[in-house]
Design a protein around this nucleic acid. Structure first.
Lengths: 105, 105
DNA sequence: GAAATAATTGCATAAATGTGCAAGTATGCA
DNA sequence: TGCATACTTGCACATTTATGCAATTATTTC
């Protein structure tokens, strides 16, 4: 496993691994349409600036996508991409064929 | 989504979302048998005490399991459990049926 | 143009986190 | 009994991170 790839995966998981960010993801998960940031504020009891920063983090990791509509910015969850990244990791972890030079017998 | 459950999931993802810990997981992933901590040290260029702490974190989140054999402690990856937690999250994220009172039309 | 709304950014701050080193504990072995 | 090995723990430290508030930018509306 390449170090760059490992770091990328770690960053992706770290982005999801924070309470308020995961709450935002869950919230977006329950919406069919894009939601603006103010609407998303409702799900966390933090300042709007904090939500703004968390959404930026999620966007940087490809977890959400945004679109600017007038003065609003609407976000949607990248369902397929996130799900497939998680499944890829799950498959890797379950796969016993990728053995290397461990201290196995 | 219950806050306690959300926090648990976030903690799980955060445990995986750190470079050295993820490296340890990948390393264990490639081993059929349990590996002791010293062997696992090889995969990260950090002090043994750091590896010890990371393994403790992973164990606390149920990602690895350990067994004490003499003065050694051997670790194995909880493949099925970790994989199924990741898949559960993937399913949740892809599932559009769980809509709530968003600002959807 | 002025006021209102949506969102971002700068700054300060507190807390969490990762790390190394040195010392400590526990076990095995000669 | 004494020494080596395997691991953990205490401490210090630097960095990152999450947060709130105030100010700023951008856009809409009156």
């Amino acid at each position: 496993m390449d170090a760059v790839e490992t770091q990328k995966t770690a960053d992706f998981l770290k982005a999801l691994g924070e309470f308020n960010r995961l709450s935002l993801v869950y919230n977006l998960c329950q919406c069919e349409s894009s939601q603006n940031a103010m609407c998303l504020c409702d799900c966390c009891s933090v300042d709007a600036s904090v939500v703004s920063r968390h959404l930026k983090t999620l966007a940087e990791r490809g977890i959400v996508t945004f679109e600017k509509v007038g003065r609003e910015k609407t976000y949607r969850l990248n369902r397929e991409e996130v799900a497939s990244q998680l499944r890829e990791l799950a498959d890797l972890i379950e796969n016993r064929d990728c053995k290397r030079g461990c201290h196995d017998d």
